[in-house]
Nucleic acid binder design. Sequence first.
DNA 1: CCCCAAGGTTCAGAATTTGGACGGACTATC
DNA 2: GATAGTCCGTCCAAATTCTGAACCTTGGGG
Lengths: 169, 169
Amino acid sequence: MKWDDLADQPCSVARTVAVIGDRWTLMILRDAFLGVRRFEAFQARLGISRTIIAERLKRLTDEGVLIKTPYQDRPVRHDYRLTDKGRDLYPVVMAIVTWGDRHYAGPAGAPLLHRHKACGCDFAPVMTCSECQAPVTAREVETRAGPGALMDRPSVIVPAAAPSPISPP
Amino acid sequence: MKWDDLADQPCSVARTVAVIGDRWTLMILRDAFLGVRRFEAFQARLGISRTIIAERLKRLTDEGVLIKTPYQDRPVRHDYRLTDKGRDLYPVVMAIVTWGDRHYAGPAGAPLLHRHKACGCDFAPVMTCSECQAPVTAREVETRAGPGALMDRPSVIVPAAAPSPISPP
DNA sequence: CCCCAAGGTTCAGAATTTGGACGGACTATC
DNA sequence: GATAGTCCGTCCAAATTCTGAACCTTGGGG
């Protein structure tokens, strides 16, 4: 299966992964959320080749995650900012940070702290239910095909044969 | 910079990405959360070469995200199940699904629906503050170096020079 | 004995990704 | 008006990764 085939699957994970599913794109997004905007800054912070930075920034821009805007004329210089669509990725990035903090922080603790300005506390994000506001865990969720599922290609969607989806060992 | 150097960075995103940051690993995790457990099932659903499946399952197992357990003797057959650490990735996967649902669902709607058993409703996950329980958006968060930051290599951590971290365009 | 099943491993060749050099469009400084 | 410097990219050879297909192992069935 090829990279772009992913985007055509009737699966939101596949479609999202087709846009942001590689190491460097995720690192670029991390930096974007930290306020990095310029090509040179991304390159300097990541220490990888300019080719990759350029390719990833282009993909993110084409997908509408970032927008390229001039910040000066003569010479024209652009920077890359998160769009609203890009900012919608914040839960993805925060979920990744949180997992890393929990499972890979050294004895000293987390490399970064996040303060919720509204309440003034350092916090961890909690995933809650949009309907009842209670925290949600994997086992409390039942997944089934939705309206966007392709009925002629159910294998991609329908949970595989197993006692129950997301069941305990 | 090489793949494994990522894991050594004082950054929880980098450390997490070093484990799950590639297309196929994320697709495997999606399937794992849908209840897929067997090598052959992962291979059949993803349609990619067995080599990649084997490599990714091994990495996830080595990292403690999946655990390989025998489900029958004679001949011994194993399956791969999510550990607690693996189940902690649910917010990551759900955040990815949610973003895909919002920005890439066709006119028909989302390919999958998620029902919160506790309240019986189909829901979308909402990221809330662990301290005040309010929903959190990117702009309400202020990021700063934490105890696990390396002071001798601040460039990896400290927000780049910008008017303010995560500021609006 | 031969074939099947599950769960892999091995290997050559194709495709992608990477790093490092180079280019182009300006400005600032002599 | 040379020269150097900044910023953003592109080009190409080399390194890595992915693919597809064959092969291996443990055991069962005809």
